[in-house]
Design a protein around this nucleic acid. Sequence first.
DNA 1: AAAGGGCGGTCGCTTCGTATA
DNA 2: ATATACGAAGCGACCGCCCTT
Lengths: 337, 337
Amino acid sequence: MKRPTISDIAEAAGVSIGAVSFALNDRPGVSAQTRERIRAIADELGWQPNAAARNLSAARAEAIGLVIARDAATLGVEPFYMQFIAGLETELSATGTALVLQVVGDHERAVEALRTLWAARRIDATILTDLWTDDVRVAAVDRLGLPGVLVGHPSVRPPGSNVPAVWSDDAAALTEAVGYLAGIGHRRIARVGGLVSLSHTRIRTAAFRAAARTHGLRAAEVIDTDYTWEAGAWATERLLTAADPPTAVMFDNDIMATAGLHVARKLGIDVPGRLSIVAGDDSQLCEMAYPALSALARDVHAYGAHAARVLLSGSGADYQDATPRLLLRDSIAPPPH
Amino acid sequence: MKRPTISDIAEAAGVSIGAVSFALNDRPGVSAQTRERIRAIADELGWQPNAAARNLSAARAEAIGLVIARDAATLGVEPFYMQFIAGLETELSATGTALVLQVVGDHERAVEALRTLWAARRIDATILTDLWTDDVRVAAVDRLGLPGVLVGHPSVRPPGSNVPAVWSDDAAALTEAVGYLAGIGHRRIARVGGLVSLSHTRIRTAAFRAAARTHGLRAAEVIDTDYTWEAGAWATERLLTAADPPTAVMFDNDIMATAGLHVARKLGIDVPGRLSIVAGDDSQLCEMAYPALSALARDVHAYGAHAARVLLSGSGADYQDATPRLLLRDSIAPPPH
DNA sequence: AAAGGGCGGTCGCTTCGTATA
DNA sequence: ATATACGAAGCGACCGCCCTT
C-alpha cells in the first residue's frame, strides 16, 4: 500500500540512489548484473517514478493541455471533440504523456487557463482548436512561449509566430462539392456557414464563392450562423421560403444539416427530390438522419492523432491532413425540372 | 517569458523565500504590508506555484483522473461524456484541480491506466463511470487505496468497500415511464436495454419487469444490446416484425431510439400512431429526431458537477441525484384500436 | 512577550563530479 | 586508463524551528 521510492530500492539492493536512477533509466554507469538486480527489485516493489519529483528536476510536466472554449450546452451532441481526443490519446499514451483537459466559456478564460497551467508547469504544450482569425490564444501562446500546435489553416498564424499548424484543405473540399452539385445540374446553391469569427468559416466561404463563380451559378447565397440547431433551422427556413430558393444547401456542420432536413420536411419539400443537402463533417449523425445525409467526410480520429504527433515530434513543421471528401449518401440528387 | 519562481519574488521583494511562501499562502508570520507587497510582485510577475514542487512536498497531485473505457468509434455521438466532463469542470476549476483524461479500450487497460497514474502520483482520485456488476475497476481502486467515486447505483459497491456513489434512481424513472404508458392504454411494451454487463442495465430491466407485472401488461419483452445504432435497429426490427408486436418501445439510449424510429419508418409503422417510443437519456438527439422523441430526462451536466463535489468533499457519503423524469415530446400516444 | 521574518531540512528524482576497484 | 558506483547538489515550494526587534 505504501508506495516505494527510489531510495527503498537502493536500500534493498544495497546500492546508492544514483545507481538506481541510472539503472532504471537505461543510462551507462551501471553493470549489467547490477542493473538487472535493481530492475527486479523495482518490479517486485511495484515502483513507479513519482511524476512530481521527476518533473520537478526535469522541469517538464509530461503533459499537454487541451482547453476547450465552448459553451457547455453545445458541447453535448457535437461529436468532434470526443473523437479528436480519442485520436490524441492514441499518440499520447504511447509516450506516457498525460492529457489535461479544461472546458471554459470563452477565449479570455481559455487564455487565462493556459497561462495558469503553463506557469504552474502543469503542461509542456497545448493544442488550439476552433481557431479564430486574430485568435487571442495564438497571440497568448506566442507571448508565453508555450509550445503548441494550431488545428487549422496555417494562415491563422500571425507573422512572426512559428507555431506549427495541422490542417486540411477545406477550400479544396468545398470546391469539389460545389463542382459535384453543379455537375449534376444545380444552379442555385446556398451555404449555411459556421461562426464567422472562425478562420475556417471564412476560408470555406471564400472557396464556395469562388467555386460558384467558376461554375457560373445563378445564386450562391451564404448565411453565417453559430452552429446551433436553431440557427441552422432559421437559416434554412429563410432560404427555402425566399423567391427562387436554392436547390441545394451545404451546411457547415451536421447538426445544422439535420435541422435543415427538418425544416424542409416541415415545408413539404422533398429531400433529395426538390432539395439536396450536404452536411458539414461526417459524424454518425449523418447516417442517423433520414434520408442519410451526404457529407464532406474526414477522419477526425486521425486528425487528433496527427496533431499529437506534430506536437510530440517538436519538428515545428506544418502537417497537411487528408482533404475531406464528398461522401455520397441519400440526400443528393439532380435538381427538379 | 521566463516563468518566475518563488525565489525570484523573494529577491524582488528583498525578503526570504520563507516569507514569500507564508505571504502567498495566507499564513500568519508576515506583516500586512509585506504581504501586500509580495502579492503585488507575484501578480506582476505572473507567478504560479510550480505544481511539481508543491505536489512533491505535499504528496498530492491536485488532479483527478477520468479514464474512459470505451471503444473510440462509439464515443463520437454519445453526448454523455462531454456534458459530464463539462459538469465536472465547473467544480474542479473552482478548486484548482486539474482533470487528467485518458481514453482506453477496455477495463483491463483502464485498471492499468489508473494504477500507473496513481503510482506516479499524477492523480489524487478518480471517477468511475459505466459501472459493471463486479467491476474490476472498483476492486482495483479499493486494492490500490485510490480514492474515487462511483457514478452508478450503490449496489455495485462490493461489500467492504466504502467508495461513495453518486446515483439516480433509474428504477423509479423506469417505473414511472411504464406507468405512464400503461395509463394511456399500452398493454404490450418492450424494452431495448444496454449492455447487460452494466449494472444499471440490470437495475432498469428488473424495474421494467416489476412494473410490467404491476400493471398486468400482456407482453414485456426485453432485448439487451451494446448501445449501438446497429443493435438498436436490429432489436427494433425483431420486435416489430414479430407476431403481436409491442405498441411501445423504451430504449436505453438516444442513439438506439433514433435507430428504432428509422426502422419503424422503414416498416411503414407510424410513430406515435402505431408505435410509441421512449428514448434513454435526453440529449439533443431527441429534439433532432422527427417526430421529437420523448425521453427519460436527466441533467448530465449537474450529474458531473455532483460527482466532482462528492469527490472533493471527501465526505465519503453517497449522493442521490434527481430521478430522471419522463419528458413528453411527440413520440408517445395511446395505442391503436 | 509577541510578532515578523530568516534559516535549513524535506519531498523523490536527476545528474555531475569524484572516488574506488 | 576504464568501468562502476558513490555522494551531494540541485529542482521549487513548504513548514517547523529559531532568532531578531
